[in-house]
């Protein structure tokens, strides 16, 4: 079972510099994410359709996990838009990590436009099962 004392996943961080903030609010898509926690890690899954591995950037900046990627399209010349649900080329999300997470051992995997980031908890901080002695 998951521990109770984690405020890890909730808070979304502000973006570092004013320039970055301006750029992000201008054109970034807020990729929808699922975040869950099990006994040994925190797992983040993000929908980023159109992003290939070489256009994906997952990094930890201080205590902030930043996930971003850009969409690549091969469009014909002289194309005209008829309908557009998606109007930006960049996905971006960031989250503040808490101290019990081991940022050195983060693993990321991208498949069919779905990014999975696995953030393990530090071994010493994983919940331990305590045996209850009875009569």
């Amino acid at each position: 079972m998951a521990t109770n004392n984690t405020q890890v996943a909730g808070r979304e961080s502000a973006i570092a510099t004013p320039q970055q903030r301006a750029r992000a609010s201008e054109s970034a898509i807020r990729a929808p994410v699922d975040i869950f926690e099990n006994s040994d890690s925190l797992v983040l899954t993000a929908d980023m359709p159109g992003v290939s591995k070489d256009r994906l950037d997952v990094r930890v900046d201080g205590t902030t996990l930043v996930v971003q990627g850009s969409v690549q399209f091969d469009l014909p010349e002289k194309a005209e838009a008829l309908h557009a649900d998606v109007r930006a080329a960049v996905y971006r999300r960031s989250f503040v990590l808490s101290r019990e997470l081991d940022t050195e051992k983060i693993q990321a995997n991208l498949k069919d436009g779905v990014l999975t980031v696995q953030i393990p908890k530090r071994a010493a901080l994983r919940p331990r099962k305590i045996e209850v002695q009875g009569p």
Partner: peptide, 26 residues
Amino acid sequence: PRGSFPAINVIQTAEEVQVFLFAPGL
């Protein structure tokens, strides 16, 4: 309403119409 799945973009040229379905993980 906005935010429906999958998101759709459509473009056209003189010769063709192209539809993009944003359908990750399917």
